[in-house]
């Protein structure tokens, strides 16, 4: 099995891939990016917390026109993972309004995004819970 690297540093690989957030220890606000301070309460202490891998589609769009090099169509969505919102593509699902619905139950799924120098980059998306 080749070496792997997560597409983003908030994706944790392994037996049970999942996302991690930076949670403000003062107010509980969650963020996925590197932080200077909390946007909600301005505190500067954060801890890593696991984000639930199942959620529901709160908003989506089917992108048919994107920058050159981005394969279309694809589904961009906001997933409500039991109170923590996540931006992701919906994968393993037809990119049609018939197949993707608001409120649809989805779960985290990973895929090989590409290989460079014998290292696979692993991306993530959410797929329908069938």
């Amino acid at each position: 099995m080749p070496d792997q690297i997560p597409f983003v540093d908030y994706l944790v690989l392994g037996d049970q891939p999942h996302l991690v957030a930076n949670e403000c220890t003062t107010c509980g606000a969650r963020f996925f990016d590197r932080r200077n301070a909390c946007a909600s309460c301005f505190a500067t202490e954060f801890k890593k917390v696991d984000v639930p891998t199942e959620g529901e589609v709160r908003a989506f769009t089917i992108v048919s026109m994107a920058a050159p090099g981005i394969p279309v169509p694809f589904v961009s969505a906001t997933i409500d993972c039991q109170g923590t919102s996540v931006r992701a593509n919906i994968i393993n699902c037809d990119p049609t309004p018939e197949a993707v619905t608001l409120g649809m139950k989805v779960r985290l799924a990973t895929y090989v995004l590409g290989d460079k120098g014998g290292v696979d980059a692993i991306g993530f998306g959410f797929e329908p819970v069938s």
Binding site: D9, Y10, T61, V63
Partner: peptide
């Protein structure tokens, strides 16, 4: 985000039509 490749199109969309589409859908 410590991304190893561009995120637009891989983690949702950054295009305005797509962002505002989701806002209406939400």
């Amino acid at each position: 985000f410590g991304a190893v490749a561009p995120v637009d199109g891989r983690i949702g969309t950054e295009t305005m039509p797509g962002v505002f589409a989701q806002i209406g859908m939400e």
